[in-house]
Nucleic acid binder design. Structure first.
Lengths: 232, 232
DNA sequence: ACGACTTTGTGCGCTCGTTCACAAGCGCAT
DNA sequence: ATGCGCTTGTGAACGAGCGCACAAAGTCGT
């Protein structure tokens, strides 16, 4: 019954988070016409340890050839399949402000099977506009469209004040994956995934390290490694 | 010489990454006029375990009162100070395309001591435009401005192809904190921090889980907890 | 055909972070 | 003043993930 023994049993979250990075590095190699790559080369391209890379890939199956490396094309296909990029993922963006505009026009969406199929906003002055070839629809339309299984991923690009309400509507409409750009915590029922992209948080983390570096410079203590921290 | 015993000795990265979330939750409470909060309440507001919250806060010092909770105003101040938000952080944005525009106009920047002071682009058709009150300058101006210690954080909002070059220029100009929106790995020398914000990666992670959920639904196995994973 | 070389896949110890559970500490009511 | 109830701060157990190091397994040259 298990259609695939490897696929079924859990891939660690940390690994899943890195697969897109590997995929991108591999795609770049493929574009340059490179057919085969060693774990060492791919690891440096992806900015990770080679052992970690190998362990990550081993979760997908034994796709490497000892003494040779990995077939680039094949690996691209396998990772893509594992991430579900062979299918088409309809995406809806809610909140067509500054950021919503940019997201709607973002080419990176289309590249990997993600397709923006609907735009929503509460602001009646925006509703009806055509952005990136799609009409901006009122938020009330959401339930109708999503109910027909047309939306897999909802992107929340509204101000924080509206985010939870918008999220609730998305969930009510059957969306089970939400990408949240609003600077707030969204609470969702079980079975719904939320990922947060938070510019402000990232800046504050950078500020923390920057401040620390400034202090170090002043005191002039080169104790400890104060090396680069390529933050996760 | 140690001006503050607690501040000096390392706060875990995982904790630092959560401090902005706590800060936001606390600010929201303060706006609602709430003066005191328990770890339990704050934890739920921030979407974390209360024990974790307490341990995180304990790294800043013993700022809570047993039997009572934490003083909201005071904690806001302390976290803000720890994150370096009492200072002003000059930010430069490179790459004034779709995303760069949105970032330049993003209000969240200004809110916490981050101030966009310069915009750069290589595209001569964009250079000279005024975006969000600032002129877009040619990339060659970067070294001059940054050399005078005017830029603390560089934001890379260019296509992936230009990102490494832009990053190198930023670093050469003395920038030691980079926020990277380009879908690629940036390599930087020791002492420089890079944080990545990657829309495409987040979508792919969501797709992975979505696909898995779809499989579960088909097979109809409610084994394991297939609960909500509020992803990190 | 065979040995030397290369690279994968992984067992193992270690570090880091999370969670539980509880003692220490504080305020308040009596 | 004293004891009670509440909440913090933290010791300790647990678990996840990372990286070293090496055996297994394949290729290539001779």
């Amino acid at each position: 019954m298990t259609d695939d023994p490897v696929t079924q049993r859990g891939i660690p979250d940390a690994t899943v988070a890195r697969l897109p990075v590997y995929l991108r590095a591999l795609s770049a190699l493929a574009d340059r016409g490179i057919a085969s790559v060693s774990s060492e080369e791919l690891a440096t391209a992806a900015g990770v340890n080679s052992a970690k890379l190998r362990k990550d890939l081993s979760h997908l199956g034994s796709y490497g050839v000892r003494g040779v490396g990995y077939d680039v094309e094949f690996l691209v296909h396998q990772i893509g399949r594992e991430l579900g990029l062979t299918q088409d993922w309809p995406v809806a963006i809610v909140g067509i402000g500054n950021l919503g505009h940019a997201l709607a026009g973002y080419a990176g969406f289309a590249s990997k099977g993600f397709r923006v199929v609907a735009l929503f906003d509460v602001d009646t002055t925006v509703v009806g506009d055509v952005v990136a070839g799609l009409p901006v629809r009122p938020l009330s339309d959401l339930s109708a469209l999503a109910g027909s299984e047309q939306i897999a991923i909802g992107v929340v690009a509204t101000p924080a004040a509206n985010a939870q309400d918008v999220c609730d509507r998305l969930v009510a409409a059957g969306v089970r994956s939400v990408l949240n750009f609003a600077p707030c915590v969204l609470s969702v029922p079980d079975g719904v995934d939320v990922r947060k992209v938070d510019l402000s948080t990232e800046l504050q983390i950078l500020a923390f390290h920057e401040q620390r570096k400034a202090v170090r410079d002043l005191v002039g203590t080169p104790t400890d490694e104060l090396g680069a921290r390529v933050a996760r």
